[in-house]
Design a protein around this nucleic acid. Sequence first.
DNA 1: ACAAATGATACAATTATGGTATCATTTCTG
DNA 2: CAGAAATGATACCATAATTGTATCATTTGT
Lengths: 132, 132
Amino acid sequence: MKLITRNTDYALRAVCFMAKHKGKVVSVAELTRKLRVPRPFLRKILQSLNRSGILKSLRGQGGGFILAKDATQIFLMDIMRIFQGKLRLNDCLLKKLICPNKRSCPLRKKIAKIESYVLKELSAINIASLLE
Amino acid sequence: MKLITRNTDYALRAVCFMAKHKGKVVSVAELTRKLRVPRPFLRKILQSLNRSGILKSLRGQGGGFILAKDATQIFLMDIMRIFQGKLRLNDCLLKKLICPNKRSCPLRKKIAKIESYVLKELSAINIASLLE
DNA sequence: ACAAATGATACAATTATGGTATCATTTCTG
DNA sequence: CAGAAATGATACCATAATTGTATCATTTGT
Ligand code: FES
Ligand code: FES
């Protein structure tokens, strides 16, 4: 069971690279060379990051991508959410067959507690803290 | 991102049912009726639980399955591990491209911490606690 | 005008999940 | 002993999610 999927992974690499070269406009071509990530896939990923406001894009010759905010303001959870959706550990597959009344379902409660912890921790990790 | 997959779910339902009817030998036929789970799939699942020592099976006419241990001694994590493998949140996809030396990789450390928490919590939830 | 970049989007391959089918073996019952 | 009712083992199939590729349109610097 993976917590982080491939596209989140690639996105992280790209964002970290750009954080290390703050202020520089980086093209997909360069990122592909530096990160060894399949180029068309990386493009798609960067476009998502752009739409989500993590990156800004500059079109035309000499264009590329650049961080839209400071590295301390971009969190792991933000990026995960873009590519993996909302973190939902719960959601009760086991409809009422385990617990009599889902209102007070003990399993749901326990899993909800785990979920909120994971969420809190992932939300606290920012890109800047991954560089040093 | 699901924490619990379908087969774990079905397994949980079955085990909970059997825990409620402690001592009774239950056939797949009966479980299928009660849980509304596809029969051949459920068979496969129960056979796994048998091989893993969660259930005992009794073959031949009048046979079926029965819990191999007390419901307080069967933990959510045990069942998850059977169907979903080891919980690995970490494993560094992002090979050395983020962190200079993976020995002291800050991301790995943080994720390892989250993993161990999740593991601990899931390991503490036993079947008996889901019945009441 | 042209080249170099991204935007949008449709399509394809691979893998994981969820599920079915079948035949062999065991055991109870008459 | 014969036959039915159960599981054991295992191969196969279907669907969905993940991981990509390809292509054409648009923007922009020179
Ligand atoms: S197990 Fe789902 S509501 Fe309780
Ligand atoms: S991000 Fe993988 S070793 Fe650090």
